[in-house]
């Protein structure tokens, strides 16, 4: 493995090769291949339930694939020993859908948490760093508030500041736009792009919000039924001939992804006695 960490890694920060993963009997990924170049904002899109969050957890090493490899900066994540994995995670930031802020700590302490855990910096220096990170997301003034006092959008920005606290190499965003009002959505969209370029990060955005994601992504990977259906720049994707991609991008209610969840036909359900509700 050490032999092939050479040339290619300068180009690609995250490489996913032939990834297979299943939960119970349900196959979630069946051969996913994605490579993400250094410095780009990569979007991974797909309908709800395609396992986009699962993919981030696989990249972060919280889950183990059934087959295939994920390499970050040339290192295979799932062959790492526990200690090395934790070292690697210090170079990764992750923004959870819920924010996952520690409810018993205020914003300042939340952002300071990774610094206090991993560094031996002085109190004064930590204070500087935290305030700079909070300033970057525009919430320096809110540093004394507790997560319960923040709006959803603000909580996500604080969580973003926390994800950036250790100056990571890769930042992963799990559904950063869902459930946001237009203003905070606009702020987040801008922030992701801005921070990516200003701090020299590589960003992975998992989302199903087509317009916002297309606005900032360099490359979009569309996943469906456990495989990457289409990869390319947002413009290239719009021009795609795939019926499926068109349905997804244009939000058509019916198409290759059926409107109806698979099940017995309506007639059978209404007339028969072994359909929905019978179990009650």
């Amino acid at each position: 493995m050490a032999t092939d960490t050479g040339g290619r890694t300068n180009d690609c920060v995250v490489e996913i090769e032939n990834l297979h993963f299943s939960r119970g009997t349900r196959q979630i990924f069946a051969g996913v291949n994605i490579s993400i170049r250094r410095g780009e904002v990569a979007a991974i899109m797909g309908p709800s339930g395609t396992g986009k969050t699962t993919l981030l957890r696989l990249i972060g090493g919280q889950l183990r694939p059934d087959a295939g490899r994920i390499r970050i900066d040339g290192v295979d994540v799932h062959t790492l020993k526990r200690r090395a994995l934790y070292q690697l995670r210090k170079r990764m930031g992750m923004l959870f859908q819920s924010g996952a802020l520690f409810t018993h700590l205020n914003c300042f302490e939340n952002v300071a948490f990774p610094l206090r855990e991993h560094t031996r910096l002085s109190q004064a220096l930590i204070r500087h760093l935290v305030l700079i990170k909070l300033e970057a997301v525009g919430l320096r003034g809110a540093h004394a508030l507790y997560p319960a006092e923040l709006s959803g959008g603000m909580a996500r920005r604080v969580a973003l500041a926390r994800a950036l606290a250790l100056d990571p190499m890769v930042v992963m965003y799990d559904e950063p736009f869902s459930g946001q009002d237009p203003i905070s959505m606009g702020i987040l969209v801008r922030l992701i792009r801005l921070l990516n370029d200003a701090l020299g990060l590589t960003s992975i955005v998992v989302s199903h919000d087509v317009a916002e994601t297309a606005e900032i992504a360099d490359r979009v990977h569309v996943i469906s039924a456990g495989k990457v259906v289409e990869s390319g720049s947002p413009q290239a994707l719009r021009a795609s001939s795939s019926e499926w991609v068109q349905q997804f991008l244009n939000a058509l209610p019916d198409g290759p992804v059926p409107f109806h969840y698979p099940g017995p036909s309506l007639e059978e359900d209404l007339l028969g006695h072994r359909g929905a509700g019978a179990a009650l």
Binding site: Y86, M94, S98, A100, L101, T103, L166
Partner: peptide, 22 residues
């Protein structure tokens, strides 16, 4: 349990802090 339900434990793990130790 609530820390787990609100992804705080997961988040901690991704910050390279082992929740079982911390």
């Amino acid at each position: 349990g609530l820390m787990k339900a609100t992804e705080q434990l997961s988040g901690m793990e991704m910050m390279a802090v082992d929740p079982e130790r911390r």
